[in-house]
Amino acid sequence: MHSETRSYRTGGRETVRDLTADCAGFVDGRGDGLLHVFVPHATAGLAIIETGAGSDDDLLAALGDLLPADDRWRHRHGSPGHGRSHVMPALVPPYATVPVLGGRLALGTWQSVCLVDLNVDNAEREVRFSFLGDGAGAGQERGER
Protein backbone atom coordinates (compact mmCIF):
# COMPACT_ATOMS: atom_id res chain seq x y z
CA MET A 1 0.00 0.00 0.00
CA HIS A 2 1.15 3.54 -0.74
CA SER A 3 -0.46 6.63 0.84
CA GLU A 4 -0.04 10.34 0.48
CA THR A 5 -1.83 13.35 1.99
CA ARG A 6 -2.36 16.53 0.02
CA SER A 7 -3.74 19.88 1.13
CA TYR A 8 -6.35 21.87 -0.77
CA ARG A 9 -7.61 25.39 -0.26
CA THR A 10 -11.38 25.44 -0.77
CA GLY A 11 -11.91 29.11 0.05
CA GLY A 12 -14.71 30.84 1.89
CA ARG A 13 -17.59 29.54 -0.23
CA GLU A 14 -19.33 26.24 -0.86
CA THR A 15 -17.43 24.28 -3.46
CA VAL A 16 -17.13 21.14 -5.52
CA ARG A 17 -13.46 20.73 -6.43
CA ASP A 18 -12.41 18.24 -9.08
CA LEU A 19 -9.55 16.04 -7.82
CA THR A 20 -9.50 13.64 -10.79
CA ALA A 21 -6.20 14.85 -12.25
CA ASP A 22 -4.51 14.50 -8.85
CA CYS A 23 -6.01 11.02 -8.44
CA ALA A 24 -4.78 10.01 -11.90
CA GLY A 25 -1.30 11.33 -11.20
CA PHE A 26 -1.15 9.46 -7.90
CA VAL A 27 -1.96 6.06 -9.48
CA ASP A 28 -0.03 6.59 -12.73
CA GLY A 29 2.06 3.48 -13.46
CA ARG A 30 1.12 1.66 -10.27
CA GLY A 31 -0.52 -1.38 -11.88
CA ASP A 32 -3.90 -2.86 -10.95
CA GLY A 33 -5.63 -2.17 -7.67
CA LEU A 34 -7.86 0.31 -5.89
CA LEU A 35 -7.51 4.00 -5.19
CA HIS A 36 -9.10 4.93 -1.89
CA VAL A 37 -9.59 8.65 -1.28
CA PHE A 38 -10.45 9.89 2.23
CA VAL A 39 -11.15 13.32 3.72
CA PRO A 40 -10.36 13.38 7.47
CA HIS A 41 -12.83 16.18 8.20
CA ALA A 42 -16.28 16.10 9.84
CA THR A 43 -17.67 18.65 7.38
CA ALA A 44 -16.47 17.57 3.92
CA GLY A 45 -17.14 14.68 1.57
CA LEU A 46 -16.19 13.08 -1.73
CA ALA A 47 -18.47 12.50 -4.68
CA ILE A 48 -18.00 10.82 -8.04
CA ILE A 49 -20.00 12.98 -10.44
CA GLU A 50 -19.87 14.68 -13.81
CA THR A 51 -18.35 18.16 -13.67
CA GLY A 52 -18.19 21.10 -16.04
CA ALA A 53 -21.73 20.67 -17.40
CA GLY A 54 -23.52 22.14 -14.39
CA SER A 55 -23.72 18.97 -12.31
CA ASP A 56 -21.35 20.37 -9.69
CA ASP A 57 -23.58 23.44 -9.27
CA ASP A 58 -26.65 21.17 -9.28
CA LEU A 59 -25.11 19.13 -6.45
CA LEU A 60 -24.54 22.28 -4.37
CA ALA A 61 -28.12 23.42 -5.11
CA ALA A 62 -29.55 20.03 -4.10
CA LEU A 63 -27.52 20.04 -0.88
CA GLY A 64 -28.75 23.60 -0.24
CA ASP A 65 -32.36 22.36 -0.63
CA LEU A 66 -31.78 19.32 1.61
CA LEU A 67 -29.56 21.10 4.13
CA PRO A 68 -30.47 24.81 4.23
CA ALA A 69 -27.98 27.27 5.72
CA ASP A 70 -30.33 28.61 8.37
CA ASP A 71 -30.80 28.50 12.15
CA ARG A 72 -32.58 25.13 12.40
CA TRP A 73 -29.40 23.21 13.30
CA ARG A 74 -28.56 22.33 16.91
CA HIS A 75 -24.84 22.41 16.12
CA ARG A 76 -24.55 26.21 16.15
CA HIS A 77 -20.97 27.43 16.25
CA GLY A 78 -19.45 29.15 13.23
CA SER A 79 -21.33 30.67 10.32
CA PRO A 80 -25.14 30.51 10.16
CA GLY A 81 -26.17 27.01 9.13
CA HIS A 82 -22.78 25.51 10.02
CA GLY A 83 -24.53 22.50 11.58
CA ARG A 84 -25.61 21.35 8.13
CA SER A 85 -21.96 20.84 7.22
CA HIS A 86 -21.75 18.24 9.99
CA VAL A 87 -24.79 16.40 8.56
CA MET A 88 -23.58 16.48 4.94
CA PRO A 89 -21.09 13.55 5.25
CA ALA A 90 -24.08 11.27 5.90
CA LEU A 91 -25.21 12.14 2.35
CA VAL A 92 -21.85 12.76 0.67
CA PRO A 93 -19.45 10.40 2.47
CA PRO A 94 -15.86 11.33 3.33
CA TYR A 95 -14.46 8.54 1.14
CA ALA A 96 -14.51 7.14 -2.39
CA THR A 97 -12.90 4.07 -3.94
CA VAL A 98 -12.05 3.79 -7.63
CA PRO A 99 -10.72 0.74 -9.52
CA VAL A 100 -7.29 1.17 -11.10
CA LEU A 101 -6.35 -0.89 -14.17
CA GLY A 102 -2.85 -0.72 -15.56
CA GLY A 103 -2.06 2.39 -13.53
CA ARG A 104 -5.11 4.26 -14.83
CA LEU A 105 -8.37 5.21 -13.11
CA ALA A 106 -11.22 3.02 -14.34
CA LEU A 107 -13.80 5.81 -14.19
CA GLY A 108 -16.68 6.15 -16.61
CA THR A 109 -16.47 8.70 -19.41
CA TRP A 110 -18.15 11.53 -17.49
CA GLN A 111 -17.10 10.61 -13.95
CA SER A 112 -14.84 12.81 -11.83
CA VAL A 113 -13.67 12.46 -8.22
CA CYS A 114 -14.66 15.63 -6.37
CA LEU A 115 -14.16 17.16 -2.95
CA VAL A 116 -17.45 18.61 -1.67
CA ASP A 117 -17.18 21.30 0.98
CA LEU A 118 -20.07 23.34 2.38
CA ASN A 119 -18.09 24.60 5.37
CA VAL A 120 -17.16 28.22 4.66
CA ASP A 121 -15.38 28.46 8.04
CA ASN A 122 -12.55 26.05 7.15
CA ALA A 123 -10.71 26.94 3.95
CA GLU A 124 -7.98 24.29 4.27
CA ARG A 125 -8.71 20.63 3.60
CA GLU A 126 -6.56 17.52 3.62
CA VAL A 127 -7.21 14.56 1.35
CA ARG A 128 -5.51 11.19 1.79
CA PHE A 129 -4.86 9.12 -1.34
CA SER A 130 -4.13 5.42 -0.77
CA PHE A 131 -3.30 2.85 -3.44
CA LEU A 132 -3.94 -0.79 -2.66
CA GLY A 133 -2.60 -2.90 -5.47
CA ASP A 134 -0.78 -5.85 -6.90
CA GLY A 135 2.65 -4.26 -6.54
CA ALA A 136 3.40 -4.47 -10.27
CA GLY A 137 3.43 -0.72 -10.80
CA ALA A 138 6.07 1.96 -10.77
CA GLY A 139 5.58 2.70 -7.06
CA GLN A 140 6.98 -0.70 -6.13
CA GLU A 141 9.87 -0.31 -8.57
CA ARG A 142 10.87 2.86 -6.71
CA GLY A 143 10.75 0.99 -3.41
CA GLU A 144 7.68 2.85 -2.13
CA ARG A 145 5.21 1.30 0.27
Score class of each variant (00 low, 15 high):
28 D>R: 13
56 D>R: 02
20 T>D: 09
43 T>A: 14
125 R>A: 10
1 M>K: 12
50 E>F: 05
83 G>F: 02
86 H>R: 06
44 A>R: 02
35 L>E: 04
91 L>P: 06
109 T>M: 12
28 D>H: 14
40 P>M: 11
20 T>C: 13
105 L>R: 03
132 L>V: 02
131 F>T: 00
30 R>Y: 13
30 R>W: 12
70 D>N: 10
102 G>Y: 04
125 R>E: 10
85 S>C: 15
110 W>A: 09
54 G>E: 09
34 L>R: 02
88 M>T: 00
81 G>H: 01
135 G>C: 05
108 G>K: 05
141 E>G: 13
53 A>W: 01
55 S>W: 02
63 L>H: 02
139 G>I: 00
42 A>Y: 07
60 L>A: 07
134 D>Q: 07
71 D>G: 09
83 G>P: 08
60 L>W: 03
2 H>P: 12
42 A>F: 09
37 V>R: 03
61 A>N: 11
42 A>L: 09
4 E>M: 15
97 T>Q: 12
34 L>P: 06
133 G>P: 07
112 S>T: 00
81 G>T: 01
4 E>Q: 15
56 D>S: 07
140 Q>R: 15
75 H>P: 13
22 D>P: 08
16 V>K: 04
86 H>C: 13
83 G>M: 08
79 S>P: 12
132 L>H: 06
119 N>K: 04
98 V>D: 08
13 R>T: 08
109 T>Q: 10
70 D>I: 01
43 T>N: 09
3 S>K: 12
40 P>V: 00
52 G>L: 12
72 R>A: 11
88 M>N: 04
30 R>V: 02
39 V>W: 04
47 A>C: 08
141 E>A: 15
43 T>W: 06
126 E>N: 14
139 G>P: 06
65 D>Y: 03
137 G>V: 02
85 S>N: 14
53 A>C: 12
139 G>T: 03
9 R>V: 10
20 T>H: 03
93 P>G: 11
138 A>F: 13
67 L>T: 02
89 P>M: 12
124 E>Y: 05
34 L>G: 06
103 G>K: 03
137 G>P: 04
5 T>S: 15
91 L>F: 10
142 R>P: 08
40 P>N: 10
59 L>V: 00
56 D>C: 08
98 V>S: 10
84 R>E: 08
78 G>F: 00
34 L>H: 03
95 Y>L: 12
118 L>F: 05
98 V>P: 08
40 P>E: 12
83 G>I: 01
115 L>D: 05
85 S>P: 07
113 V>M: 11
91 L>C: 07
30 R>C: 14
102 G>Q: 09
31 G>H: 06
77 H>N: 14
115 L>I: 00
117 D>N: 01
75 H>R: 11
68 P>E: 06
105 L>K: 05
3 S>C: 15
133 G>T: 01
6 R>H: 06
16 V>W: 02
